[in-house]
Design a binder for these strands. Structure first.
Length: 820
RNA sequence: GGGGCGGUGGCGGAAUUGGCAGACGCUGCGGACUUAAAAUCCGCCGGUGGUGACACCGUGAGGGUUCGACCCCCUCUCGCCCCACCA
């Protein structure tokens, strides 16, 4: 008997599995397919424990699925474009490409230590020309179908990274850059957008998808659908404004239109200058300047007291022809709705606060049930929407619930407005003034405007010889020759787009490239697509709920409508892992010094112990703090497993009862472990295997070794162990037990329900809901038998003290409760 | 302000979903082996009282439903995360 030395067996098996192509996944129509996809890593240079936590449980589950007869595709790749490469390059003076590919190589070596079942032939790197050629191709398809367009737009700009940021990449209350933390500023640039908003409604539906509630809620809120009405106001002629202007607003409360006593425009609203009367010009200009200079921190703080100024202008309320003042205030945002609101202070708290501060009229139009008639002049706050309409022209007397639709009907009839829907979701800004990304394959010609590069000329290669230092301009723009080309339409000299694409574009379709990473007739081989898609289970971090996971859904739906993909959704099932914290319960970070490095752990305990601890120490979707003594526990367990299999197994004398108990425990464990693998409850897989091992030690003590029941236990144990601990399972299976290579191509055992059944069951007996005794009855005992056994219990009789029970509840085979 | 998740021993967590609370592991304590240490093995380990059998209390707090509640309902509270003046 030798000791368990993982370092001696793990590299051996990793090399053999790879040499044998054990994990190659190819189309095989005789088996059902299973596409298990993990969010691909960014090649930051080091595989940390969080990567392992994200990747090991899905690997174990993919292995489990394979043993269940599925043809499992389990690929890996790298999201290789992006800012960190440039930031690192600037810091170290190495080329982003060199930095990135060096990191990829290092991380691949680290990944091999994990012993995962990746099909290494399918590795995909988004910065490879053979990959981004097709990213560019997709861009052109979107452009050709009117889903990509250019727009001048105020964008968030990070002065540190010298790049624009998507709304989703601006973080925190202080609105800082996702990457470097610098507060963002606004800048006007003409850029490329994708029409994600066209799919807003469809993205709200999760029909047929098994996605966590949390993610669905996040996406729903992010898309932010509001139903209401757009209402057309006219401004009253005043000052230079001789004719009046059309002023459209969006409201979710058209029913309160009769209570609108003023209007508020965003300071940036284009009508502000036209409406402002000469005597208010100075004040308005000062406020606008203040609002513009103000950082978004101040502007978006909800607890801030509302401010604003009167423009001197008036608008006409279309429903009652009243003249109401027009104000500007920074609590109205130019980026939502039309940048203008009708203010109904009696029924909106924000408007109420504003009205009270500036002495504006508050007019009640909904009288809540059972309250004294409200007086706008004295009411202490706005009131909500249920009650009866008052002061509301034709709506007066209707209930507020009906008034919403009645008001829209009224507006539509009078042609003053119509029902409308608004979204918080914006179109996806994909332009980046950066070097390390996929070039946008577009050409600008003075005569023919913007046209795509002909598809047979793709990829538009990213030149290696650029100064990638941040200059405020795209480095590609500064390249002496790169941008010079000819117009694909007229052949005259023209200029390339020098911006590159948001890397979320690259990661929106990588799951398709895995299908055929070297295919050159298209982004993917349709035969592979037909077999493997859609993704059956997608795993990754919750942080991508509103970015990547919306983009990739949009991308798939857009491709479906362009005839490129099929089906409505790319990923059927989604599961998110939690986070591994440091031993101090804080997020792991180098600066805090609480990082556990997987390479060192593997060196010390072996990959199998690290793998099993990672699945054991927390519920996978919750995460938990790391513990260096905790991993000693799983390492100890594997040593005990090793000793169990390699220890003395000479047949002894053994009772039938021992053998039966062993089989029972084996099949009960199998039932429970099967359930847990199915449901991503990996932590209890390990505890189940630990319990069974303890039971097997007891059985061996009782002489079970060498019996057929013992052999069965060993066999099933290794099959259950193999997904989490592939190396030790293979060694014990192939070498120690001498069974045919490989344990990983074995089938998942079937539960023998007869063996798993108990002959006798122990039933707790309660008196008045308190546990007083336990009785042992035959498993097939009926209710009457259980009842009389419970009543016969001495302890129960003691508590009954001679009295007859009022009621006896027998919960089928689970519990007896005697009520006195 | 809105939404989500969560609160179970010293710690991570079990409890197959309304039926024995604390599985499994870590830590700690006691013991065996050893010249000693490591490793390994055995035992104890929610609280209070009791030598003990046992009794009482106990899943953030309070209430409710139920024969029975960690689980369902209501009120509150604390922690984490997301969104946030969205008209």
């Amino acid at each position: 008997m030798s000791d368990y030395i993982p370092q001696g067996i793990e590299p051996k098996w990793q090399a053999k599995w790879e040499a044998d192509g054990l994990y190659h996944a190819d189309i095989d129509k005789s088996r059902p397919k299973h596409y298990a996809l993990m969010m691909l890593p960014y090649p930051s240079g080091d595989l940390h424990i969080g990567h392992w936590y994200a990747y090991i449980p899905p690997d174990a589950r993919a292995r489990y699925m394979r043993m269940n007869g599925y043809n499992v595709l389990f690929p890996i790749g790298f999201d290789a474009f992006g800012l960190p490469a440039e930031n690192a390059a600037i810091k170290r003076g190495t080329h982003p490409k060199e930095w990135t590919y060096k990191n990829i190589e290092k991380m691949q070596q680290q990944m091999r230590l994990m012993g995962s079942m990746y099909d290494w032939r399918r590795v995909t790197v988004s910065a490879d020309p053979e990959y981004y050629q097709w990213t560019q191709w997709f861009f052109i398809q979107l452009f050709k179908h009117g889903l990509a367009y250019r727009k001048m737009s105020p964008v968030d700009f990070c002065p540190q990274c010298n790049t624009t940021l998507a709304r989703e990449q601006v973080w925190g209350e202080d609105r800082h850059c996702e990457r470097c933390g610098t507060p963002v500023i606004k800048k006007d640039l003409e850029q490329w957008f994708f029409r994600t908003t066209r799919y807003a409604d469809e993205l709200l539906s999760f029909a047929g998808m098994d996605w966590p509630e949390r993610v669905r809620v996040l996406q729903t809120n992010w898309i932010g659908r509001s139903e209401g009405a757009s209402v057309t106001f006219k401004t009253a002629p005043s000052g230079d404004d001789k004719t009046g202007h059309v002023l459209e607003v969006f409201t979710t409360r058209p029913d309160t239109l009769w209570g609108a006593t003023f209007m508020v425009l965003a300071p940036e609203h284009p009508l502000v200058n036209k409406l402002t009367t000469p005597e208010h010009r100075k004040e308005v200009a000062a406020y606008k300047k203040l609002a513009a200079r103000q950082s978004d921190i101040d502007r978006e703080a909800t607890d801030k007291e509302k401010t604003g100024v009167f423009t001197g202008g008036f608008a006409i309320n279309p429903v009652n022809a009243e003249k109401i003042p027009v104000w500007i205030a920074d609590y109205v945002l130019m980026t939502y709705g039309t940048g203008a609101i009708m203010a109904v202070p009696a029924h909106d708290q924000r408007d109420f606060e504003f009205a009270r501060k500036y002495g504006l009229e508050v007019r009640v139009v909904i009288q809540p049930e059972g309250l004294e008639p409200l007086d706008g002049a004295t009411m202490p706050g706005s009131v909500p929407a249920s009650g009866t309409m008052v002061n509301s022209g034709p709506l007066t007397g209707t209930s507020a619930d009906e008034a919403f639709h009645a008001a829209i009907k009224f507006l539509e009839k009078k042609k003053l407005g119509k029902g409308a829907v608004n979204y918080k979701l914006r179109d996806w800004l994909i332009s980046r003034q950066r070097y390390w990304g996929a070039p946008i394959p577009m050409v600008y010609c003075q005569k023919d405007g913007w046209n795509p590069i002909p598809e047979d000329q793709l990829p538009v290669l990213l030149p290696d010889d650029v100064a990638w230092k941040p200059t405020g301009e795209s480095p590609l723009k500064l390249h002496p020759t790169w941008k010079n080309t000819t117009c694909p339409v007229c052949g005259q000299p023209a200029e390339r787009e020098t911006d590159t694409m948001d890397t979320f574009m690259c990661s929106s379709w990588y799951h398709l490239r895995y299908l055929s990473p070297h295919y050159h007739k298209g982004p993917f081989d349709p035969r592979e697509y037909d077999y493997w898609m859609p993704v059956d289970v997608y795993t990754g971090g919750i942080e991508h709920a509103t970015m990547h996971l919306i983009y990739t859904r949009f991308f798939h739906k857009a491709c479906r409508d362009m005839g490129i993909t099929r089906g409505d959704e790319p990923m059927i099932q989604l599961r998110n892992q939690g986070m591994v914290l440091g031993e101090d319960h804080e997020k792991m970070s180098k600066s805090k010094g609480n990082v556990s490095a997987p390479d060192e752990l593997v060196k010390r305990y072996g990959a199998d112990a690290v793998r099993s601890y990672l699945v054991f120490f927390a519920k996978w979707d919750m995460g938990a703090p790391w513990s260096h003594t905790g991993i000693e526990g799983t390492f100890r367990w594997l040593k005990r497993v090793w000793a169990l299999f390699t220890g003395p197994s000479a047949p002894g004398s053994c009772s039938a009862e021992t053998k039966q108990n062993l089989r029972r425990k084996v099949h009960q464990t199998l039932r429970h472990v099967t359930h847990d693998y199915e449901n991503f409850e990996f932590n209890t897989v390990i505890s189940g295997l630990m319990e069974l091992m303890n039971e097997m030690y007891t059985a061996r003590q009782a002489g079970a070794a060498g019996t057929p029941e013992w052999q069965e236990a060993l066999d099933i144990y290794l099959r259950m162990l193999a997904p989490v601990c592939p190396h030790i399972a293979e060694e014990l299976w192939t070498v120690v037990l001498g069974k045919p290579y490989s344990v990983h191509t074995q089938s998942w055992p079937a539960v023998d329900e007869v063996a798993a059944r108990e002959d006798e069951i122990t039933i707790p007996v309660q008196v008045n809901g308190k546990l007083r005794d336990r009785i042992v009855v035959p498993a097939e005992a009926g209710e009457d038998q259980i009842r009389s056994a419970a009543l016969a219990s001495e302890t129960v009789q003691k508590f009954l003290a001679g009295k007859a029970p009022r009621k006896v509840i027998v919960a089928q085979k689970k519990l007896v409760n005697i009520v006195i």
